[in-house]
Write a protein that binds this DNA or RNA. Sequence first.
DNA 1: CTCGTCACATTGTTGAACGGTCCAACGGCC
DNA 2: GGCCGTTGGACCGTTCAACAATGTGACGAG
Lengths: 230, 230
Amino acid sequence: MASMASMQGLTKMSFQRVSTAEQVRDHITTLILDGSLKPGTPLRENTIATTLGVSRNTVREAVLLLGQSRLIRHEMHRGAIVAEPTKDALINLYDARRGLEVGAVSLPAGAEVIAGIKSALDDLERAADDGDDRDIVAKDLAFHAATVRNFGSERIDAFYAQLAVELSFYLNALAASRLDYAADASFLEEHRRIYAAIAAQDHATAARCVEDHIDETIRRLHARLDAAEA
Amino acid sequence: MASMASMQGLTKMSFQRVSTAEQVRDHITTLILDGSLKPGTPLRENTIATTLGVSRNTVREAVLLLGQSRLIRHEMHRGAIVAEPTKDALINLYDARRGLEVGAVSLPAGAEVIAGIKSALDDLERAADDGDDRDIVAKDLAFHAATVRNFGSERIDAFYAQLAVELSFYLNALAASRLDYAADASFLEEHRRIYAAIAAQDHATAARCVEDHIDETIRRLHARLDAAEA
DNA sequence: CTCGTCACATTGTTGAACGGTCCAACGGCC
DNA sequence: GGCCGTTGGACCGTTCAACAATGTGACGAG
């Protein structure tokens, strides 16, 4: 006890403890997310192993770990390839978003959650002014993540974060051209309406606004995708 | 084209294609879920490898795959151990459940979703009559999963299923003695009320019933845990 | 054009090995 | 007795080499 008293300043610290496999996984993840590895690219174990200077087994472990996310697709004896954004996958993602976000704003919101949403909205407005597409997408997702926090569950937040990662990957991959989010004046206005309804504890309106906003987003996306195909 | 026309009957089928690592993962999973591997048990790669007659690398892959779920805990240079149910972990689980389920019943429900809930309720009542604790827990979870289906998202359903697996593991692990769910007459009644409110499209009542039900479940659980400690 | 066949690339799995880390036990020292 | 360095063993993380099994593409016969 006495020895413990003299160590008051000590707090549990975390060490480097990251296996090489995990580092490789993170590396590949960033490569996928920033577009260095395009959808459909096969992840050849040997090439990755030699280029990164690690064993093939370690690369296998990394790819297995990466398999948790849906950024890659695995097939027996065929290896892993970078996931290819499908319309179906996008729809699945947006179904999950719609469910989660509409459900979240349908519940009574605490003060700190509302404050978080307000802060996220401010960030989004600033990003919209600057005009950096990548940043706008990130701040957009952050705003919606702030609303989901209203569930008050870390697990749900983590789940939503996973969806957000996938979504940003899909958007970046699909939008070879610009997204031009800011071009739509209604884009910001929709977010403002959502925040206002939440702050006013008007759950019915908030739910409707979120639903409309997401449906509108899907509509925009479809228009852009169809345009890209033609 | 002509050759395709003569193959109308063919539909995409799935083959055996299951790697040894995946089989080992499934095997370990069942061992954990049915209590053969008790919480805190270390998963020694060598022993598993020799007893199952596979290579240690394969076992490593299996354990990595298993790491996706939270049934095991991994620590660098210390290996994996079967997860130990903590009160905090249980609370996190129930926070997620509460958020998801309350959110789900707050949304308008379609006819087929309501039918699914009704069917799940009937199953639960039958199971309660039989009195098999394991079965009651399963049917209880199935009922709540049916309500979550109201989100209309496969991803959310999958997420909830993951929670359910963890939950059943925790309940089985914590309840060394019986759960005696059926002993509480209110247990079934709460489910009936939830269903009735959903079927009546009375979202406010449904949300309140679900919230009360989950809080009540947590209370029951805590009482049982505290009793077990003493 | 279709269908075998065959060689090649890649993955799945194994076995062995080496260094590093954790852990418990032992023994010296105050 | 309590504290600390040492020691040895168990186990993990990682690498390497090899073989089997499977997918892939090309080539040629019919």
